[in-house]
Design a protein around this nucleic acid. Structure first.
Length: 718
DNA sequence: GAGCCTCGAGTTCC
DNA sequence: CTCGAGGCTC
């Protein structure tokens, strides 16, 4: 290896950093980041390093120093991370203009009747008001959003997590069903639909893959997903994928007034629309269509997993709007899942991060819909004993025993579930399962709190299983996002005492210092490159956000959403930490502040306070935080609206919409709707026949407006 | 106190 | 994906 010294580069002293203005620091750091990028490429990709490890470390250290002092620099460093510094493998992530939601789903006719009832309730429709629906087969493939600008296909995104999709434009362009140009020259037209692989192409693909010893796909959906994500578009083209358009996403001009018309327009524009789409005027008609499709299912050359019902009128769709992850105006009526019968060989106990002891059935491996299933959760003691939460027997009172034959299916075609016991096959060899009274990992007593559905290990921090699960959570993608720190690695490092707590992760690299007689790359399965990658990932994770960090701690009841809510309310780590510690006394102002955050109740608050009050946490926290740069919370102005952050109260009977709808519309614009007036209320909307609220509002000097003024405000906000 | 919605936690396989 | 619990509204 040869090294070319970096000419003219000297590390910064603390004094020099202090003397820098923010703009100067930004310019400096951009240079440094560029240099790191070059060095990374030279080291990893060109295998021809341009600097010594010490120089590299000094560089990184300087960036950290600058980042710690200047918020502008932190933003820059994060940007670099997002782009991936060295070219990230795979596809770039792009944000959907309109999120790609999933559908709520139902399995029974009752679910569908409830669906209609809730729509009527929301809109305030009586039986006289008719609502038309469109019923269409639910293709079992993967969703794609095609963006056309001035009639030209410019982007194709997968659903991803619904917010950000993967950019697969080049691959999508190879599908014959996807037009590259449209006669329609709208500024923007986003067409959404399903990519799928036909049954016969799937069979063909697996046959040829078998011959050449390549990977066999479990089902057409997996094959389609794998095909659209090929790095080489030519490979995608070979896979002969199909595409059915089913809706619009973003658009500059409306295409039609009803969903059914819109589908017809899409057909005219050259898209394939499923021929079995049907316009229906009642739920009964939808259900008949479901039966019909269900009967003809086998004749189709593609897999479907149900039928989707959508409210036909776009105006109504808009009024109904969406919940956080699903629209109110559509539902998927799913077919009953494929089932299989197999035997329970054993029942294991898994220890979760929170100490939960959950039983898992080890099954005689069995093929369900192309996937071999060998275990399934049994949730908790009651589930096994066939006792419901209310203390009453479920599943006809049949308990689940080792050696029992059981019906297994894959919920949502993914997660294995046990549906029931085949009692006729039960023999004398079955054994009742004895739920453990001690933790299988640490031997501490198991305890089931009242109101808890599961027993938990009481070993807390002394339980290895809990510690390992906690570490896995800490490094996970949505938490600290330490890439390349898989579960197996965590387990190994824990067992050889390298990593016992999160702090150890950030001290790992230093622990292989000059005095150490062992290096990571000497370990089985590790090389120079993989070791360097791991350390790099760890060092990148030192820069993190407040909400990620709070979430990563793995405090019970504090998940991703709540962590980000806390970050939003406390803004900086220092503030958060001191406030929560001070909230320990329930008489303190800090406790009251914590509990008054909308969405934080007693359970969460108690869990938080207990976590931070413990001796163990206090000891660990100062060390952990000294290894990190926790970024302050930054407000992202999502939408500017006159209603944003206003607290609104409705009173009396509204004429134009139901309370439900009014509330949903207000919340879409970022307002908060409450039922009772207080000094915090900004606006009272007065319906007809209102009670005493108007008088009270005057006393509190809350602004009062009529329903029509309110509607005016809404239309301006839109 | 019931009912609705959202979030947390556990889970499987590739 | 699903279940159940937590939080909020009526």
């Amino acid at each position: 290896m040869r090294y070319i010294p970096i000419m003219g580069y000297k590390t910064f002293t603390t004094e020099q950093v202090d003397a820098l203005a923010a703009e100067e620091a930004l310019i400096e750091v951009k240079k440094l980041l560029k240099l790191v990028g070059k060095a990374d490429f030279a080291y990893h990709s060109a295998d021809d390093p341009i600097m010594t490890d010490a120089e590299y470390d000094a560089l990184k250290n300087d960036i950290m120093l600058l980042a710690k002092k200047f918020p502008l620099v932190r933003v820059e460093v994060k940007k670099e991370e997002r782009v991936g510094g060295t070219l990230a493998p795979g596809f770039t992530k792009v944000k959907h203009v309109i999120p790609m939601l999933s559908l709520s789903n139902g399995t029974s006719n009752t679910d569908i009747f409830n669906f209609e009832a809730s729509i009527r309730k929301f809109l305030g429709f009586s039986v006289q008001n008719s609502i038309s629906f469109v019923s269409e087969p639910k293709i079992d493939g993967l969703s794609l959003a095609l963006r056309y600008e001035s009639g030209i296909l410019v982007q194709a995104l997968t659903r991803g997590d619904g917010i950000n999709g993967e950019n697969v434009t080049l691959n999508a362009m190879t599908l014959p069903d996807i037009p590259k140009r449209l006669s329609n020259k709208f500024n923007v037209l986003e067409v959404r639909g399903e990519v799928y692989m036909s049954k016969h192409h799937f069979a063909e693909l697996n046959r040829s893959h078998k011959e050449i010893g390549e990977k066999i796909f479990a089902n057409p959906r997996n094959a389609a997903a794998g095909s659209i994500r090929q790095l080489d578009p030519n490979r995608t083209a070979e896979r002969k994928l199909g595409f059915f358009a089913y809706s619009l996403g973003d658009f500059s001009e409306p295409l039609a007034e009803t969903h059914f018309e819109a589908l017809n327009k899409l057909k005219e524009l050259g898209f394939r629309v499923n021929p079995r789409v049907k316009l229906c005027s009642s739920i009964d008609e939808l259900l008949r269509h479901y039966e019909e499709i269900s009967c003809n299912r086998a004749e189709l050359d593609y897999d479907i997993d149900g039928v989707v019902y959508k409210v036909n009128e776009i105006k109504l769709q808009r009024r109904l709007g969406s919940r956080s992850t699903t629209p109110r105006w559509a539902i998927a009526h799913k077919f009953p899942p494929e089932e299989a019968i197999t035997q329970i060989i054993d029942i294991d106990i898994q220890v979760g991060r929170t100490g939960s002891l959950s039983p898992v059935a080890k099954l005689q491996p069995i093929n369900i819909g192309g996937v071999i299933v060998s275990s399934a959760t049994l949730h908790n003691e009651d589930y096994i004993a066939a006792i419901g939460n209310d203390g009453l027997p479920i599943r006809d009172g049949i308990d689940i025993r080792v050696n029992d034959w059981v019906e297994v299916y894959r919920a949502g075609d993914v997660i294995p579930k046990i549906k029931g016991v085949v009692l006729e096959k039960r023999s004398s060899t079955t054994k009742k399962f004895k739920y453990p009274v001690v933790c299988p990992s640490c031997g501490s007593p198991a305890k089931r709190e009242e109101n808890d559905s599961i027993s938990r290990c009481t070993g807390a921090i002394f339980c290895p299983a809990q510690a390992i699960e906690g570490l896995k959570h800490f490094v996970s993608r949505r938490a600290m996002n330490i890439d390349g720190f898989g579960n197996k690695i965590i387990e190994n490092f824990f067992l050889i005492d390298w990593i016992k707590t999160p702090v150890d992760i950030f001290r790992l690299e230093k622990s292989f210092g000059p005095d150490s007689h062992i290096r990571l790359e000497d370990m089985d399965g590790w090389g120079l490159l993989s070791a360097a990658n791991l350390f790099r990932a760890i060092n990148e994770a030192r820069f993190t956000t407040l909400s990620r960090f709070i979430y990563a701690l793995g405090i019970r009841h504090i998940g991703e959403q709540v962590a980000s809510l806390l970050a939003k309310n406390y803004l900086t780590w220092e503030n958060f930490y001191s406030q929560i510690c001070a909230a320990h006394s329930k008489k303190s102002d800090q406790w009251v502040d914590l509990c008054s955050i909308d969405g934080i109740g007693k359970t969460m608050a108690e869990s938080l306070v207990a976590y931070f009050y413990s001796e163990h946490t206090k000891n660990m926290m100062s060390e952990l935080i000294s290894e990190l740069h926790v970024e302050d919370f930054e407000f992202v102005e999502s939408k500017r609206s006159v209603l944003k952050n206003l607290t609104v109260v409705f009173t009396g009977t509204l004429q134009q919409m139901t309370r439900l709808e009014a509330k949903a519309r207000a919340e879409e614009q970022g307002a908060k709707v409450t039922s009772s007036l207080s000094s915090k209320t900004d606006l009272l909307v007065l319906g007809e026949n209102s009670g005493s609220k108007a008088r009270k509002a005057k006393e509190l000097q809350v602004k009062i407006i009529s329903e029509y003024e309110w509607l005016d405000l809404l239309s301006k906000a839109d």
